[in-house]
Design a protein around this nucleic acid. Structure first.
Length: 171
DNA sequence: ACTATTCCGGTAA
DNA sequence: TTACCGGAATAGT
């Protein structure tokens, strides 16, 4: 498995850690997580330069142009069958638009709460845009944070808000 | 027994 | 009428 680190705009010590592996001759991203600088960037001899460049290129493109469409392969099968359905649906929400947990639930014939769960478990934040799902009354949660509860140093809701503002969603 | 929810009824300003 | 609480309903882990 290979990790690459990409700085996240605005939120100073914040980075995106992208992990990928090469399973039978094709590269797939296996997870993306938020971290603060101190992370180790693993440089393997087998490091696929082409793929790491593509990851960097696509993320930088998105940060420069919110309408950029990702084509990076994610190993969506790492999720449960239900999570796979939700994550797939997320990829179909275009930049600049949002859906509520309830709306998505209706489309998937599930419940708002279950959809929220699947979003919370999203292994590929930013490129699978779980930030485009909001609550009926407000903004909803992000990375486990809600309006009431915050886990680490940063309140990840600010990041969700930033992503939405970046995509020119008014709310 | 937890959730990144939502809807409806009651109450108060 | 609007705003704000409580509680039940809900589906997946």
């Amino acid at each position: 498995m290979i990790n690459i680190i990409i700085p996240f705009p605005v939120f100073k010590p914040l980075h995106l850690c992208v992990s990928f592996s090469n399973s039978c001759s094709s590269d797939v991203i296996t997870s993306i997580s938020y971290g603060q600088k101190t992370f180790q960037q693993s440089s393997s001899e087998v490091d696929n330069l082409i793929f790491t460049k593509k990851i960097k290129y696509e993320l930088e493109s998105y940060f420069n142009n919110p309408g950029f469409q990702f084509s990076l392969p994610c190993d969506i099968q790492l999720g449960t069958p239900f999570q796979q359905r939700v994550w797939q649906a997320l990829t179909e929400i275009p930049s600049g638009k949002v859906k509520t947990y309830g709306e998505l639930a209706k489309e998937l014939k599930s419940s708002a709460r279950a959809v929220g769960n699947a979003c919370r478990r999203n292994l590929f934040p930013v490129i699978i845009p779980c930030h485009r799902v909001v609550s009926a009354s407000g903004v909803g949660g992000y990375a486990g944070d809600t309006l009431d509860t915050q886990r680490g140093q940063i309140n990840f809701l600010q990041i969700k808000q930033w992503l939405l503002a970046h995509e020119a969603v008014d709310r």
